[in-house]
Design a binder for these strands. Structure first.
Ligand SMILES: [Zn+2]
Ligand SMILES: [Zn+2]
Ligand SMILES: [Zn+2]
Ligand SMILES: [Zn+2]
Lengths: 166, 166
DNA sequence: GCAGGGGATGGTATAGTGTTGCGTAAATAG
DNA sequence: CTATTTACGCAACACTATACCATCCCCTGC
């Protein structure tokens, strides 16, 4: 199978099974059900470190013989988002697995436009800067969308400045 | 007419005409044409400090007797974005006028979920924090999407903590 | 004035993304 | 085993965005 590895090398089989284990555990604790469908979709998302669109997921499900229509996918994604297991990337209309589902995380995403990999940062310093600015404005934050598109280190090295990276 | 004022009080008629003047001037300098349609759409967007969806704009245009189809609106929005005169808010699929079109600006947007007003910040300190983090990751930034949803000061005062604001 | 060229606009069709509503099935509770 | 809740299948629809082609307008050179 041809999935993308993230530019930070790691044991991908482990990373997927670890994520699934953690998801099971989190749902257990929360008293929610990680059903077969939910697990299947979460695993699909983790298999690809790339963001997957809802209709990408739909296509894969149907390939795998599971009959599904859009609402099935969106409902499941809603659940997974609610549990903090996946994030939606607004600038891509796509979804990625959350790497720190136990912590609360105002995700900050580094999106490589060449290899499509997404790295989620915790980025406390950014969060602090944001909270300082919004505080100064008297603005009460509910949710922060921070998505940074560019080129990852691996791709910068790979094409030696070819695509604007230097 | 029923447009929303931003929560920072200001002379709205001025703010719109100023924005239009600056737009004309910028296009003049750049050697591009701020045609009647482009000016009309830019003004529509400025009239409302709320983000307007492309189809909102389309509806208003048609109300105003100008026949338009989606591509007309999107083309015009592309132009205005290219000139830095409007920004697209990814988390809303909507567009707002840029308050500082002359400066380069990695827009940071405070979006009030009650009154729908959007305030664009320059937020140098946030930009610095982001650039520091991405630098540490060896990530080359092309574009930053920073959209903060919450409650603006005016709405916090208005409903005295009713909606989670305190 | 007249032809040519490039940017801007009109218009149809279609692709891509997300939601509503309702009925059925499966799991949990009593 | 029945009642209740929760999840799933499915059809239809709404919203967002793009591809493609034709026409028009404006400017320039002749
Ligand atoms: Zn992995
Ligand atoms: Zn990359
Ligand atoms: Zn104004
Ligand atoms: Zn407000």
């Amino acid at each position: 199978m041809t999935h993308a590895l993230p530019y930070r090398t790691h044991n991908h089989a482990h990373c997927v099974t670890d994520a699934m284990d953690e998801a099971r555990s989190l749902c257990q604790t929360a008293g929610t059900r990680l059903t077969q469908l939910r697990a299947q979709i979460l695993e699909l998302i983790w298999q690809s470190h790339r963001p997957l669109g809802a209709y990408d997921i739909l296509a894969i499900l149907n390939d795998q013989g599971r009959k599904a229509a859009p609402p099935t996918v969106y409902r499941t994604l809603d659940f997974l988002q609610g549990m903090g297991l996946v994030h939606r990337i607004a600038s891509l209309n796509a979804f990625v697995g959350c790497s720190q589902p136990s912590h609360n995380h105002n995700g900050c995403f580094l999106i490589c436009e060449e290899c499509q990999n997404v790295l989620e940062l915790s980025a406390d310093s950014i969060r602090q800067a944001i909270s300082k600015e919004t505080g100064a404005q008297g603005f009460k934050v509910r949710e922060t969308t921070l998505e940074i598109a560019g080129t990852c280190p691996a791709c910068i090295n790979k094409d030696g400045g070819k695509n604007g990276a230097q």
